[in-house]
């Protein structure tokens, strides 16, 4: 009725908007190069097969959690429960998978169902995902504590083997990162139903008018998110070989930060799986790099451990600021 006026009033310049998109698209790659360069400057030996293996050993779970978050963000929602969910999965994996694999699989399948149910509630009742997933975060955290009141458990053999495998030339985390990015890119960016899924975030009404079910698409995206959340929890156990209910609480912010660094936006269905994986790597490298940075005026010349969390928060703010600057410069 009146949107016509709004639309034509905001007629955009073709060249400028696509250039801006390119610049934003380059942001993850550029930040990766900057972080790698900084590490190399402080400690050249770190950029090697074993150095990367060491620095990136936790990057794979983070990357998978980031992909999960990105799937939810693609539908214009946010998942505040992903950290707790990854913790829950880790507890299930380390506690039941070695001895009672069937029970473990059943529990993880239940996790997928709960995610799908959450999507149904969010869509049908038209309620904010923030509150629903915040409630779920307590649900998962509570379950994790019930399963693993004290830290412990063991990684199933196949996960330990997978995560400690050392392929020739290319470090395993790098190989897995490329594999994850490629697979998700195929599913979401290159498949024909992927276009519909992304379209829901861009203009749900248009997708609905074309005869697709928005509910199904949202449920599919949440289910996909839970699958990647499960993979994140399992690989996390593979790396750390035991579990604790609170081991992944930080993943909620990390995953949002990673997705955002990777070019995902909070509304509009704009996502980039490759960017998201790079974003996760950047975050992981940045926090490892904190250990290398020599800061003369600090005691011991190092950034204290307790600032790691804060540094991640600041890193996210910096990236967002860079994005704002890019769009301002383009105006």
């Amino acid at each position: 009725m009146t949107t016509q006026a709004v639309h034509s009033g905001r007629a955009q310049n073709l060249a400028s908007s696509s250039r801006q998109r390119l610049l934003r698209g380059a942001l993850p790659a550029v930040s990766l190069v900057i972080v790698l360069a900084a590490i190399w400057y402080f400690n050249p030996r770190a950029i090697s097969y074993f150095g990367l293996n060491l620095m990136l050993n936790l990057a794979i779970p983070v990357a998978l959690a980031t992909i999960a978050q990105m799937c939810v963000m693609a539908t214009n929602e946010l998942d505040l429960s992903i950290g707790a969910f990854v913790g829950f999965v880790a507890c299930v994996t380390a506690t039941y998978m070695p001895q009672e694999p069937l029970l473990a699989v059943l529990m993880l399948g239940g996790g997928v169902l709960v995610y799908m149910l959450a999507a149904v509630v969010i869509h049908l009742r038209n309620v904010p995902s923030i509150v629903v997933t915040l409630g779920l975060s307590f649900f998962w955290a509570g379950l994790a504590v019930l399963i693993r009141p004290i830290p412990g458990g063991a990684a199933p053999g196949f996960l330990r083997d997978l995560m400690s495998f050392q392929p020739p030339l290319i470090p395993m985390p790098v190989l897995l990162a490329v594999l994850i990015a490629g697979t998700v890119h195929l599913i979401l960016m290159r498949s024909s139903y992927g276009a519909v899924l992304r379209g829901v975030g861009g203009n749900a009404r248009a997708v609905h008018r074309a005869g697709w079910s928005i509910l199904k698409a949202k449920v599919a995206m949440f289910a996909l998110a839970s699958v990647f959340g499960i993979l994140a929890g399992m690989t996390l156990v593979g790396v750390s070989s035991s579990a604790d209910a609170n081991m992944a609480t930080g993943y909620t912010l990390l995953s949002i930060a990673g997705a955002v660094i990777g070019g995902a936006e909070f509304v509009g269905g704009r996502i980039s799986p490759i960017g998201a994986v790079i974003g996760a790597l950047v975050l992981q490298l940045a926090s490892s790099a904190l250990n290398f940075f020599q800061v003369p005026f600090l005691p011991g010349g190092r950034i204290p451990q307790e600032w790691q969390v804060g540094a991640q928060g600041m890193f996210l703010i910096l990236i967002l600021a860079a994005r704002v600057l890019i769009s301002k410069a383009e105006k």
Partner: peptide
Amino acid sequence: FGSGLRDVFTGVIIVAAIAITGTRQPLR
């Protein structure tokens, strides 16, 4: 009951409460 179950309960209550108070808004 321990803290774990308490958290589970609180989470479920929140989600249930929000689901009840929500409204359906159809797409056009």
